[in-house]
Design a protein around this nucleic acid. Sequence first.
DNA 1: CGCGCCCGGATCACGCTGTGAATTTACCCG
DNA 2: CGGGTAAATTCACAGCGTGATCCGGGCGCG
Lengths: 415, 415
Amino acid sequence: MAGPRRRTVRDLRRNNRATVLRKLYFDGPLSRQELGPLTALSSGSISNVVSELVADGLLEEAGSVDSDGGRPRTLLRVAPHCGHLAGVDIGETRVRVELFDLTLNELACVDAPLPDGHHDAQDVVRIVASGLAQVLGEAKVAPDALIGVGIGVPGIVDASDAGGAVGAVVHGQAIGWDAVPLEAMLRDRGELPPELPLFVDNGAKTLGLAEMWFGAGRGARTAVVTLIGSGVGACVIADGVPYQGSSGSAGEWGHTTLRVGGRRCRCGARGCLEAYVGAEALLERWRESGGHWTSTDEEGALAELLADPGAGELLDETAEFLGAGIADLVNLFNPERIVVGGWAGLLLGPRLLEPVRRAAAAYALRHPYAQTTIELGRLGPDAVTVGAATLPLARFLAEGGAAITSGEPIVSGAS
Amino acid sequence: MAGPRRRTVRDLRRNNRATVLRKLYFDGPLSRQELGPLTALSSGSISNVVSELVADGLLEEAGSVDSDGGRPRTLLRVAPHCGHLAGVDIGETRVRVELFDLTLNELACVDAPLPDGHHDAQDVVRIVASGLAQVLGEAKVAPDALIGVGIGVPGIVDASDAGGAVGAVVHGQAIGWDAVPLEAMLRDRGELPPELPLFVDNGAKTLGLAEMWFGAGRGARTAVVTLIGSGVGACVIADGVPYQGSSGSAGEWGHTTLRVGGRRCRCGARGCLEAYVGAEALLERWRESGGHWTSTDEEGALAELLADPGAGELLDETAEFLGAGIADLVNLFNPERIVVGGWAGLLLGPRLLEPVRRAAAAYALRHPYAQTTIELGRLGPDAVTVGAATLPLARFLAEGGAAITSGEPIVSGAS
DNA sequence: CGCGCCCGGATCACGCTGTGAATTTACCCG
DNA sequence: CGGGTAAATTCACAGCGTGATCCGGGCGCG
């Protein structure tokens, strides 16, 4: 597979650039002085690295603060407009393209509805490409000012190079995609700069990333963001980076078995977590127990369920299943934090969180459970684009903002 | 917690030493010539690094092979006696201390039985210390020729520094240990060289490591080694290193819930995997369904179960549970390989492997399942010591064989 | 038997790195 | 206007990997 790759003394500089850039990105404006201890670099190196970064336009000065009686320290920050990022959310019902500056402020956004059911991949690719062109135009950003594009898709993304096609391949049963070489198709249109970093990952994972960077997961080094919507998924963060597994399809928590031989799940197996706590399955169970609703969308229906005093038992049972599922995560991953997200998760949260915590405590081992907190997500489902944009951003920071041209094929899931 | 640490140009050399050392360790004798492409180092660097390592006594020449018409290449290999490793297995019924050379050949071994039930930690520590002294004496190895000691314990090892005590703290319900600061106790005896690297980890995990290094897991970068004995555990390897979680207690697969509200498990929860496929639980279930045995030990009893033609249904059910449990691992971790080990796993393997594969295929998602192979372990339960010795060895290789003196507190779980 | 060839390995000049002390710069205060 | 102070830069130094060059051992050809 991948040959061993470690190189020269130049990489030191790249790493130090990355360290400085990251520190400055996350921990606000800092002076060169403070940067030293924080990055374990000597004052000399800080000076060199910073002036290089300033020359490259990645850093800018941001005022200064007095230092009693001496030269004031000048603060540094990442220049928000030194590059732009795009996030794409390919959902089951719409495509959403959003343009951000480096600090992930929204600059422009377009939404394109998608007809129900199967989506011809070619069509979707066209929509994405024109959406990108549109947001760039709206915000008056040149295409080569794009640092990278992240795309969240509904389905499993295979980052392994199997199949011959270069780049990410998407298997999305929900929208009828089977081994769609999304990255190659997008590139082949020739509208994007040929070397533009392109990242494709599961939409649930990108949502999880957003939650980790800017939501309830902030600060945790190892965490699991659970996403409960119509179906159920999860995004596992180990040591600050998404855990990918051998082919990028790790974290399929929804199809974890909670009852051997139990309810039939839409994946074909029996007793999956999703078959009990996914919104679709939950409503189905409500109907079976005599519930009914008038809303035409799942979201409204679920709200009606929550308002029904007769659904208490159903909800308690759901909490037990969800708690047991979370306990599995606690036992297997031993995270510091578990975030319950997804539109259904956020809707159910206020009602279920406490019973879920109790169930998780009962089902999990004491020791790892004591290390974990279970919290509600803080970001809505629209954060998929933000999370997707996070992918090229992470790469950008990790490279120290270097011109990304060389070697290493750019593939989804690259950390 | 841990401040950011990255340093100087000297680390480059350390890394390259490590790369060369590792390559040579795993892929047998190689010439300097071959080493170049394999480590992505220039011939000059290879020359420098190798001569340094030879001067340090870590490498030695191992014959030469003709190169048609030119100067023959001299082969290099790691010097097996340039250092020694000790592995300790603290089991529920005995302590086992084994001494290895660098290639993990056994040099000496002592076994000390432990009385049943609770074990006073102080006693165990004494036994370990004297065991170490004994194997060193038997093999005529000086204590400072020890590269490090690895210890496998039955219980959860907390590597986080909570509690004030420096070093690994062990929570072992099975032997009545609660927050035993094993590392500190061992060091406080003062018999070991004060800077000797000491690693403590769960015995199941060290067994898993052994399987990864020398058994059925060889070559896989991400894998899960499942360990079925009286109880059930697992060792998760992500990208070649053990996945630890936030406090080192990840991989508690045995207490994953397979049936919400199901059988009571000895951990207190209901429906754990262990409550169905652990040997203890399996025998219990056999008894409930009318089985009986004459052996006094679980191993013999399990053999009798396997020989009983009337137990077919029970075994099929067990296979379904085990398959579902493995499917959970496949869905969550997306490994390239799953190894079924542990004494009970190995005993049940020939009978159960096929039905387990079928069940796993049914319960897991198609895509990740297609990426995985499910295999039997190849190492017996005695490999705990080998796996434990693997811990300091990994550190030794990662440090490029550098004198391990400085900085970084030496703690279990350090990768 | 001797010569030339060929290839593995060592050497060396070069450009690059981070370090840390000395130096310069910028601002406040009296 | 000059002294004091602390931030930021500069600079000599040691160390690294690179890759061209050099050395030397053994084979095959004449």
